[in-house]
Amino acid sequence: MLIEAKNIKFGYSKSKPVINGVNFAADEGERVALVGPSGCGKSTLSQILAGCLNPQSGEVLFENKPLPRKGFCPAQLIYQHPEQAINPRLRLNATLREAWTPDAVFLDEIGIAPEWLNRYPAELSGGELQRFCVARALAPQTRFIIADEMSTMLDVITQAQIWELMLRQIERRGLGLLVVTHSTELAARVCSRIVRFESLTRQGRSTAV
């Protein structure tokens, strides 16, 4: 297994866990969609898988070893609001280089115009900023990508653009992908397997598309 979550429990107070006893696993090159009602804990699980939150109990394994706490995390999260995931006071060039230094060919493929690099986040639209988040998450060390409602705030054309370029990269490099979405149509388009969140608390049953 590429990434595996075992018996995860997490909550902001001890007595009321947001998620409890959740199991999840995904293999290399697999594209999994996670669907479920709002507030069920999908976002919490994605943050735990990306190492942004530490579970109260249970563990996240990456290639059968615990997910590294320090250093570059091989599972990268792309979040719903790109404007919150980018420091508003830094030029985008600096933000991108925090992860890695992509070449011109990559930037072209991901749809980042060279002149955007010298701008501040407030000068770009949500769709343009989300490309930077995608580019950042696609650093060479990344093996697994978690997209939490990544395209929900975007219009349909930008959504299709971003998914097209991201899927091209993911396919080429054989990365794993977890898509958290409320749109069944999108899940069916992008993923090879759809998982309902409720099924994760029992044995990870899922439906193939």
Binding site: C52, K70, Y79
Partner: peptide, 11 residues
């Protein structure tokens, strides 16, 4: 903020 977490997870 999210970008702080992101930066930490970028190593």
């Amino acid at each position: 903020r999210r970008y702080i977490t992101a930066s930490r997870k970028l190593g």
